[in-house]
Design a protein around this nucleic acid. Sequence first.
DNA 1: TTGAAAGCGTTACCAG
DNA 2: CTGGTAACGCTTTCAA
Lengths: 331, 331
Amino acid sequence: MAEISIDDVADAAGVHRSTVSRAFSRPSAVRTATREHVLRIAAELGYSMNPLAQALRRGSSNLVPLIVPDITNPFFAELARTTTAAAEAHGYQLMLCITDGDTGQTADYVTSMHSMFSPFGIVAPSTRVDLEALRRYAFQNRVVVIDRVEDDPSVPTVTVDSAHGVDLAVDHLFELGHRRIAYAPGIVGTYTAQDRWDAYGRAAERHGILPVILEAAPGVELGPGIVDHLLSESVRPSAIIASNDLIAFAIISELGTRGLTVPGDVSVIGFDGLDLGAHFNPRLTSVRQPIADLGRIAIELGESLIAGAPPDHVVLEPSLLIRSSTQKFAS
Amino acid sequence: MAEISIDDVADAAGVHRSTVSRAFSRPSAVRTATREHVLRIAAELGYSMNPLAQALRRGSSNLVPLIVPDITNPFFAELARTTTAAAEAHGYQLMLCITDGDTGQTADYVTSMHSMFSPFGIVAPSTRVDLEALRRYAFQNRVVVIDRVEDDPSVPTVTVDSAHGVDLAVDHLFELGHRRIAYAPGIVGTYTAQDRWDAYGRAAERHGILPVILEAAPGVELGPGIVDHLLSESVRPSAIIASNDLIAFAIISELGTRGLTVPGDVSVIGFDGLDLGAHFNPRLTSVRQPIADLGRIAIELGESLIAGAPPDHVVLEPSLLIRSSTQKFAS
DNA sequence: TTGAAAGCGTTACCAG
DNA sequence: CTGGTAACGCTTTCAA
C-alpha cells in the first residue's frame, strides 16, 4: 500500500532518479531505449509523478483556480463546465472555487493561488467583489477576469457586450410593437448589471420610449417585488427585459400567480440564454451569452499572460434567442 | 515579489525554522511569548504556510475532492454548494471535479486523490460509473459515495430513501384521485434511478393500479419523447412522476407545446425539490431531497473513515413538496 | 546521455 | 521548550 516514488522506479529500472524524471518531463533528453524501458517499468509499477512535489520543486503547477460566486446559478455552472473542458484541453487542472458572493473569500482564493503555484487564475464577478483588493492580492497580477468590465487595463478580461445585448432585446420588442418596455435589474452591484442598465437607458432614448425600471422593494423577494412594482405603474408596461434568465423565470412565475400570462399579457425577455429556458413554460426568449467562448478565451488569455504578452481585452457579441415568451404587442 | 518562506520568518524573528513551524501547527508546544512574537512577525511579513509543502512533508492534505458528473444539473450544483460549506466548516478545502459522466475521468480523479494527499474523497454517482474500478483505484478505500445504493458494505454511503420518495409521490397522486399514474424514468443507469423505478412498480401494485413506464424513443429528446409515448397510450395517464425535476420541466414544457396544460390536463410531480421548481410555471410539486444533509453527512462520514470507524450507511428521508403542478383528478 | 548533489517549503524526531 | 538534521518526491544544475 506504500506509495511508489520516483526512486522505486529508478531502482527497478536500474537507473538514477534524474533519468526517470527526464523520461517523464523531458523525453527527448533521454536515449530512446532507456526511456522506453523506464516508462515500461513505471507503468508496471503503476507509477505516476506526484504533481505536488513537482509543483513545489518547479515553483509552478498546472492548477488553475476558477473563482465563481454562485455555482447554483446555471450561468456559472455552464461557465464552470465549459471552462473545465477548455482547461483540460490545455493541460490545466481547473480548481473550482465557490465564494458565495463573499469578497473576502474571493481574496482568499486569489492569495492562495501562489501557494498552489498556479500559473494564473480566473475570476468571474462576484456581486460585491472589491477589485482593488483583488489586484493588490493577486499573484503577480496573473488573473483573468470573466464577464466584467474592467477599468484597469493591466488585467486581461473577456466580456460580453452587454450593451449590444440590451439593444438586441429592446429592438426586438420594439419591432414587435411594444412601446412601454420595462427593465428589471434584479440584484445590482456588478459592472455588467450597471452596463445593461445604462444600455437600456440609451436604447430607450434612441427609440424615444420612456424608461421604466422595475425594482423590488427592499426585503421582498425578487419575483413578487418586481411584479408589485409592475402593477403599480399607472400605464402598465407590455414588455419586460430581465437582467438575467433566473429573474425572468421568477417574474414569469409570479405573473402567473397574479393571473397574468406570458406572452399574452406581458412579453418577457431574459438575459443569458440558458438551455434551461428552452424547457421553461413558455420557452424563454433571451439574449444569449456565448458561455463556451467565455471559458475558452479565459484560458487562452491566461496562457498569453504567462507568456508575457500584454493583457488583452476580448469582447464577445451576444445574440438573440427568440423563443416563446415574447409576442407582438396587441393593445 | 519573492515569496516569503518559513526561513524568512525564522530569521526575522530570531528563532529556528522548527519553532516557526510549531508556532503555527502545534501552538501549545511553544512558549507563549515566543509564539506571539513569531506570529506577529509572520503577520507583518504577510507570511502563511504553504499547504503544498505541508502536504508533501506530512503526507496528508486538507484537499477533499468532490466528484460529480454534471455541475449543470442543479441537483449537483446545490450539492456542491452545500458540501463546500460543510467541508469548510470542518477545515477542508473542497476540490470540485466534473467528470461529464465519464467513468474514466472518475477513476482518474480518484487515483489522483492520493497524489494530492487527500484524507478522503466524495463521489456522487455518474450514470455509468463503474464502481468495481472505482474501488480498485480508490486510495485505501477512503471514498464516500453520495446518493448511490452500494452493494459493497466497505464503502460508506449517504443516500436518500428513493423508494420512500416514490411512495410519497404515488400516495399523493392516489389521494388526489389519480388512478392512471405513469412514471418517466428519464436517463437510466444509476442505481437510484433503478431504485425509483422498482419502487414505482411496488407502489403501483400496492395501490392496485397499472404501471405505465414512459420512455423516450432512442435518439429523440427526452421531453418530446416522453410526451410522444404518453400520447400513444390508449388510456392516457392523468399523472406523471418524473425521475427528476429537470425531466419534469421538460415534460411540462413539451406538454404545453402540444396544447396540454399542467395540472389541468395532467398532473406532474418531480424528484429533487429544487428551488428552481418554485419559479417554474406551474410551481413544481416534487419529492424533496435533503441535499444539504447529504453534503454535511458525506463530510462527517469521511471524517469517521479517517478515524478508522467502520463504514456507515446513512439513509435520509425525502419529503413531499406540494406546489402547483398536481391537482385533484377530474375525469 | 546519464549520474551526483543540492534544494523547493515544510515537519518530525532527537538532543540539549 | 528550542535547535539541528533528515526527509517528503521531485527537478535542475553541473560534471563525467
